[in-house]
């Protein structure tokens, strides 16, 4: 997938917001790809973490919004402990989630969960899942 670079697409607001929420300077990313190589969910995300960082550097809101990556990220922190630039990528993912959630847009709907699943799951699954995916 090519990345289009254009000043029109570059959203400085988004960059600022992510920096504010995450406290991370993603401009420091030098695209080594260690994060992508560490991600357990790599087969299930459509934009690898390294590319998320690149898209952020470019301020490409559209591509970021289309990606499922923050929503499949399990906050396992593997990328974070391995990043040679010391960027807390999990915090960047959280910021991307929060930007949506704070607009009152939920990723999962509680009422659509199967009752059997709710009865079966440990409470920590719901507490953490709802925190990450509902506003």
């Amino acid at each position: 997938m090519p990345i289009f670079i254009s000043t029109r697409e570059s959203d400085d607001q988004l960059r600022k917001k992510v920096r504010e929420i995450s406290g991370q300077n993603f401009q420091q990313c030098y695209q080594c790809g260690t994060c992508s190589g560490s991600c357990p969910m790599i087969e299930h995300i459509n934009v690898f973490p390294r590319r998320i960082m690149a898209l952020l550097q470019l301020g490409n809101r559209k591509a970021l919004e289309e990606s499922n990556t923050p929503w499949v990220c399990a906050s396992c922190h593997t990328c974070m402990v391995r990043c040679p630039r010391g960027i807390d990528i999990t915090k960047v993912m959280e910021a991307l989630r929060l930007i949506k959630l704070r607009q009152n847009i939920d990723r999962i709907e509680l009422k659509k969960l199967e009752p059997e699943q709710i009865a079966d799951m440990p409470q920590i699954a719901m507490v953490s899942g709802f925190r990450k995916m509902t506003s």
Partner: peptide, 16 residues
């Protein structure tokens, strides 16, 4: 030390 998918059992159950 690899992640089992954790709470993604809710968001991405197949991946988990």
């Amino acid at each position: 030390t690899k992640c089992c998918g954790a709470y993604q059992v809710l968001g991405a159950p197949e991946a988990t």
